[in-house]
Computed example of a mutant assay.
Amino acid sequence: MGQVFERLNDRWRRFIADQPMYFVATAPSGPEGHVNVSPKGYSDTFAVLDDHTVGYLDLDGSGVETIAHLRQNGRVTIMFCSFTRSAKILRLYGRGSVVLPSDPDWPRLLAHFGPHPGVRSIIVVELDLIADSCGYSVPTMTEVAERDLLDRLARRPDTVARRVDRAGDHRHSIDQIPALAPRETDPAHQHS
């Protein structure tokens, strides 16, 4: 039986820090459209900002679903699950916002994360529900290593050129929900 928690206490902060990955889920408003679930890695891209606020570094990748959904309705769930002997799942429900390099909070927030190229935005989530569940069916797995492919690709000249071109266009979700305006962010040159 799961429990609801008032805040991200030290126990939950340690649990979050110990997980090599997490999942971010968002959905468009209304009954139509596609629910999106994104796996996230790099242990230094997630931060507990206070007892009721978390953030993560949004690195440029293949799509803009999370940004589009958050700008449309703000709803987001972040899930951590333990792949070690401790069978536990933690879900963080809340309202997310997209922080861009032009925002006044950018430098303060960026300081919470490790060095990565290809930074598009920072997602900040104000939590309204913190809940756990058993995780009894989650397999135990051994982490071999963090995969550095996204960082390596971000440094390649062809990737930089593609990101420069893409930054000049309107970006939309797969359901054509607006996400980013031209030149609103610069993941080709923005680093944490």
Rank of each mutant, 00 (worst) to 15 (best):
L90P: 00
V48Q: 07
L149H: 11
G63T: 15
Y22F: 15
H52K: 05
R95L: 08
G30F: 12
S102A: 12
M79Y: 10
R156G: 04
D151T: 03
Y56M: 03
L8D: 04
L129V: 03
H34V: 08
Y22I: 00
S137A: 15
L59C: 03
L149T: 12
G114C: 07
H172A: 00
F46S: 02
P28R: 05
F80I: 03
S102G: 10
V144C: 05
Y22L: 04
P104H: 09
E126M: 01
R11C: 04
P31Y: 08
R162H: 11
V54T: 08
L8E: 04
A181C: 00
I177C: 03
A145R: 15
L149M: 11
I123G: 02
L57Q: 12
F5R: 02
V24Y: 10
D10A: 14
D60I: 08
G63Q: 11
G30D: 11
I123F: 10
T140G: 09
L57S: 03
R183T: 12
G96S: 08
V124P: 03
D175A: 01
L127R: 06
I123K: 03
G94P: 06
R71C: 05
M1T: 10
F113Y: 10
C134R: 10
V4I: 14
R147D: 14
I177L: 14
S137F: 14
T185Y: 13
H172G: 01
T26W: 15
E184Y: 11
D151M: 09
S121E: 10
A131P: 01
E32Y: 14
L59Y: 08
I16V: 13
P20V: 05
N9Y: 09
G135E: 09
N9S: 13
R156D: 14
F23A: 00
A181Y: 11
R156M: 15
T140D: 07
V124D: 04
Y136L: 06
S43T: 07
T142S: 10
A17F: 13
I16D: 06
F80Q: 00
E126K: 10
T45Y: 06
S82Y: 13
P187S: 02
M141C: 01
H69T: 00
